[in-house]
Structures are given as structure tokens and as C-alpha cells.
Design a protein around this nucleic acid. Structure first.
Lengths: 210, 210, 210, 210
DNA sequence: TATGAATGAGCTTTCATTCAT
DNA sequence: CATGAATGAAAGCTCATTCAT
């Protein structure tokens, strides 16, 4: 399990691209429906309508499938974030964070079972999650966001603040969405997440905040 | 697999108790060193110095080992929390939360690898985490803590607030400690976690918060 | 599997006798309800209300349990035969065979599932069935019966005839009773068995033999 | 375990066919030499010169191996019966039954140990023997035989008669051949079986039937 | 004698991975 | 490149049997 989940060959031809996509799609399906323990490469191949051999043409091993799925998810989250921010260029940090939280919550609600598997079962592959390019981009973007509003922030170490914001945002969203999910109304939970982030970032300078 | 974590027989004699403990200890060791995928019942038995049969005398299956380990961890965290709070009866909420965070951080630093496996690889058994009695106790205690300081709190729904506080506290601690851990100094991270919780609970009512 | 199913010690004390009986009874129950594959010594011991160790006090191994059960059954069948014949001292062979068939059919109908297991799963232990004392007695009695009516018999080799009669009688009764049993009414089947035996033994000389 | 005997995939290519055959052959060998208890899938695979995986490619589980063997045997017996009858189109029932008995006796003498296992150890899988297509065909053929000679028969219910004839014929042949076998000369036993069947069917009114 | 915790060989079955076609 | 039959290591779990108490 030491080799990194790098696709064996970078597929550029559209046919290969489609193949990779359908394999990934199949992986997501099987993973959602049967969990990690119930997922195996033959099943994925069958579901994708290709042979096992073809799966191994593009993915060095079973775990790389999940790795790729995780990266795809991170990429989608990054895109969602960019899309949302592009639509609200010069607004306040609170509004921007709120928009991100809402967008991510919405995105996760589409396939909660898959995200459960991805979140709960993925990390155990030795792949350090921070190696993911998409994760890096997300981090960078949040960092940039904080810098843009540096003046109003309580935390001074923006790297640390970005890390804290991202970690708690992600884990709260996951906890809220992933089965069994929040015991509370989803909108209230969403608001609480936003409040928490804002409280941290803007938190203390208010004189009445004891 | 829905009703696992019940030991096959309730061990009352000290010999049985010791056996169960050594099996659990062995599980923790093997899990830490080899991860879930590399852990198997024969290995655990060997490490515990007993036969596989004995393992199955007390645990219905492999997963129940991890279940039990998880419960043990939750129980320890609950105890740590109680111990810390007992030593500071009538202090402010911030101080109390800070104490809990520090105690838990310290506790997790003892066997970070084990916690990585427990946190990251355990949840994939369908066992809903909320079924755990120890987890319930922890939640109840935090809820009680918030109630005792209800007057100074911004969030009004204390159930929700307890859920948010617990989720973010736990996930941030895990993210900080579990390999690869924070890229930031541990004390600063710790402080940031405390700030976040306090910011949420005491923080953001300010309309001018931009 | 080479050692013969001889009880370790011949129990003479009444307490031992009762123990052996309850173990045998438990074996019969478990065997009936779960089949050979589902039967194990611990289950039998539990059902009998004794410890496994006690089972091994009286039976050298698992198979000897079934052996003993088989022997018990054969003994019962022998007794039933003797009882029936004792009540009809000087009647015709046909009537006597008919009485035996009816008695055995009735006896087998009490616990068909157990007999299924006994008949179908027992023979596979290397114990040669003819070693059984009770089986020997049954054979001897049938042989004696034929001798008593030697004059009216077509077959001249009475040893062979006794073997044929016993084999077909037993197998037809088993086939009739053991699930799924005959597809025909039990009385008609019973009559057919009697007809077959009589047809063989009396062959053709009786014009009234229908 | 109710619907076993279906091979996982229907082998059409000659290579697969050969594989299935060699696995079955290996099963027969191992079963003959070591009995059911001593038979395991790894042994079968080894003997067949294939890997365990290949065994499971064509047979869903261990028991289905024996199921298949049983069906193969029934098919062979059916074929033997047809072959024999084809060679004696318009002869008397007695002659035809005699021919079948002789053919089956001969067939069983080839691998008595295997038949012992098949007959004695097989039925304990819940597979109802009557489900077997080959068994059905055999029954149908015997029924047809009786119908063709209906006029000379004492039994009027031909279904019942066919059942009785088949049951006793098979069980007597098995008892004669399967170790430890008859204590009587094989030819005399064979003749006795034929006499029994004829005695039942013709009731003995034929004075020439000795 | 009775107990039942402990043993551990051994079995069935799965599935990631390969490679001849 | 694609295929999918074949591989075989490996793992979970059972249960007949023992023996210290």
C-alpha cells in the first residue's frame, strides 16, 4: 500500500477519458450502495461495463480508485467555491463564507452515502490528504479570502486561521450531512456553522463579547 | 452487522477481565502498527498471547474488537473531562472548555497512531457513533455545561450548540494530532480551537461584523 | 475417525444412565432441528444441561453420539418387532410381516426428521452397520421367521431372503416416511410394501395371494 | 442452501468444459478416498490441477460439487437404462427389469466407494432428490415400462408401483454393492432382486416364474 | 467426577491482480 | 489496447477436544 495513487497513464484521448469517467462513476455507485467492504474491482468493472483488465489499465490498484474519487470530489468542491465567489465579488467575509457553506452543504446532499464512504473510509489509505492538489487549491483560496479581509479579523496567523476554518467547516458539514446526520433542522445547523466561523474570525474585538 | 459491540459473555471473573483487556491492548497495538487492513484476528490473538478461539470467546467478530476499543476511548475521554471539571467547580465557560480541550489534546498525544485508526477507520462499521453510551455521556455533560452558563450565550438552541461544539472540538483535535497533524505549533492550534469555540458561544451577535 | 464408537465406560449407576440418556435425547433433538452440519458437541451439552466435559466422559467423540443414537433406534425397532410378534404367535408369514411393517412405519412417523438424519447421515461414519448388535438381532429374528415358514417359501436360501426382505423393508419404510416422503397415501404405500415382500417370498404358488 | 446445483457460469467452451470435468473427476476421487469429512475444496483443486479460485468459478460452494456428482451419476444411470432397453425392444417386463438391474449393478461395481459416499453422504444436503432432472427421467421411464405391460400387472396404481420398484431396486443394488456389500454371491443377490421386483409386479400368479 | 475456558488446526470462501489470447 | 479466466495468498471463524480447577 505504499505506492501513491497515481493513474498509470495520463489519459488524453477522449475515449480513455470517457473510460476513466465511467470507471469512477461505477466506483462511486458501488461504494455508495455497498460500502468499502462490499466493493471490489470486479464489481466496479462490471458496473462500468468494462473488463477488470481495463480498470487496471488506468488505475494501479483498488485504492487508487477511491483516491481518484476523493480528488474528483475535492475538485468539485473547489469549483463550487470559485463559482460562488465569482458571483459575489466585493462582499463581506461573513457573506462569502456563508455562501461557501451553503454551496458545499447543497453539494454534499446529493450523494450523502458516497460522501460517508469517502470521508469515513478514505483517509485510511496512507495517502496524506494534503497531498491532494485540489485540497491545496481550496486551502489557498480560503487563505486568500482571509487576507482580503485581514483588517477585520481577530486571528492574526492567517495560515492557522485558514486551517481552522477549513477543518471545522468540512467536518461540521460532513457531520451534518453524512448519515445519520444532524438531529437538528438542516437550516439551523447550517446557520450554526456559519456563526461558528464568523464568531471565530470576528469574535473578540466587540467590547460586549466578554 | 448492526448489533456488534456486545461481548459474547460478560466477563466478571478477574481472569476473564484480564483476558479481555489484553486482547483489547493487543488490538490497539496491531491497529496502530499495521492499520485496519493489516490487522487480523490471528495477529491480535498472537500478540495478546492467547489463541484465536479465546478472542472469539469474548468478541463475536473482528469488528467488535474495534468497536470495543472505540468505546474504551470514549469512556476515557469522558473520564478525563469529568476529572478536569471536578477540579474547577465554579469557573467561566471559556476556562472550562479550554481545560477540556487541553486535557483531550494531551490524551490524544499519547497514541496518535491508534487514534488515527480509531477515528479514521472505525466509523465505517455501520455502528452509529451515537449509540455509544460514553459518547452520550459526553454530549450530556457538554449540554449541561452550556446550560449552566446559558445567560452569557449567543446560541439559544443549546442542543444544537452542544452538537456544534462537540463536533468541531473533536474534529479539530483529531486533525491537529492525528498524523500528519497540524502544520502549526501545537499550543497555537490549541488556542485557536478554544478561540473558535468561545467565538461561537459568546461571539457574533454584532450586526457590524464585516 | 478410525476408532469405534464404543462408550468410554459402561454406565451402570442410575445417575450415569440418566446422564447418558439425557445426552442422547439432546443429540436427537439438535440433530432433528439442525441436521448433522448444524450439530456440535457444545450445543448438545448445553441442550442436555451438562458440560461438554461430561459428554466426553461417556462418549469418546462426536460421532459416537450418533452411533449410539442409531443403536438405540435399532434396539427400539427390535423391541417393537418382538412385541408385535409376541401378540400373534401362530399366524401366517404374511400377517406377521404386515404387522412388523405397520409397527415400524408407526414408529418412524414419530420423529421423521431425526430418522432422516440418522438414516441419511449416519452411514458415513466408518462404523460397519452390521456390527450393531441390535441389527444382528433383527436379522436373526427375521431369519427365524422365514425358517418357521420355510415350506411355503419360493426362495430357498433363507439367509439371502432375510437380507433382501430386511433391506427392502427398511429402505421402503425410510423412503416413505423420511421427508419428503411418499407422494402416495401412506396406507397404500404400506400395503405395497407388504405386497412386495409377500410377492417375493411366496412367489406364485398361492392363487389367493392378492 | 436450497438452490445449489447451478454452476456459476454455464461452460460452453471446450476448455471450461474440460475444467469442470476435471474438477468433478477430482471430487469423485477425493470423495472416494477420504469420504465427505476428509474432503475439502483445496484438496479437490489440487487433485484437479487447478487453483481453488477456479473451483469457485464454476461451483458456488463445496456442496454443489457433490450435487453435481450426484446428478452426473443419475444421468449415467438413466443413459445405461435407455441403452439396455434400446437393445431389447419387445421383450417381457421381467426380462427388461432384469436387464436394468444387471446394467446398474455392473455400473455400480466400477467405483463402489464413490457410490457409497454419494448414496450415503449426499442426501444430507437438503437438496430433494426428486428435484434432479435425471432422477425424474428415470422415474418416468420406469413408469412408461409398467404401462406398456399394464395387463400382466397385479398393482393397479402404476405411479405407486413405479415408486416402489425404483426405491427397492436402487436400495437393494446399493446395499449389495456399497461396502461392506452383500454377504452373498453377487449373482444370487442380483437374481433375488429381480425375483423380488417380479414377485411384486406379477404377484406370482405365473407358475413359470421361478 | 464435573466443569467450561482455552486451544488451534483447519476449512470455506473472497478478491486483487496477472497475463495469455 | 481490451479481455476475463485463472490464480492463490490470506482471512475470518468454527468446533472437537483437552485439562486445570
Amino acid at each position: 500500500m505504499p505506492d501513491l495513487p497515481q493513474p498509470r497513464r495520463i489519459p488524453r484521448q477522449s475515449r480513455s477519458r470517457a473510460l476513466v469517467d465511467s470507471i469512477l462513476e461505477a466506483t462511486a455507485h458501488v461504494l455508495s450502495e455497498r460500502g468499502y467492504a462490499g466493493t471490489n474491482t470486479n464489481l466496479v468493472a462490471e458496473r462500468a461495463g468494462v473488463s477488470v483488465g481495463s480498470v487496471y489499465q488506468y488505475f494501479p490498484n483498488k485504492d487508487s480508485l477511491i483516491s481518484a474519487l476523493h480528488e474528483r470530489h475535492a475538485t468539485e468542491m473547489h469549483a463550487a467555491m470559485e463559482a460562488v465567489l465569482a458571483g459575489m465579488p466585493s462582499q463581506g467575509l461573513r457573506a462569502q463564507l456563508a455562501a461557501i457553506v451553503r454551496a458545499w452543504m447543497a453539494a454534499h446532499q446529493i450523494a450523502p452515502e458516497l460522501h460517508r464512504v469517502l470521508e469515513k473510509e478514505f483517509p485510511f489509505f496512507d495517502a496524506p490528504p494534503d497531498q491532494s492538489p485540489a485540497d491545496q487549491s481550496i486551502y489557498a483560496r480560503v487563505h486568500q479570502l482571509l487576507e482580503a479581509h485581514r483588517d477585520g479579523l481577530v486571528p492574526q496567523d492567517l495560515s492557522l486561521a485558514a486551517w481552522v476554518v477549513l477543518q471545522s467547516m468540512e467536518s461540521l458539514i460532513h457531520a451534518a450531512i453524512i448519515p445519520p446526520g444532524t438531529p437538528h433542522p438542516i437550516e439551523k445547523t447550517e446557520q450554526a456553522i456559519i456563526d461558528m466561523l464568523t464568531g471565530y474570525l470576528h469574535g473578540g474585538q466587540q467590547p460586549d463579547s466578554r
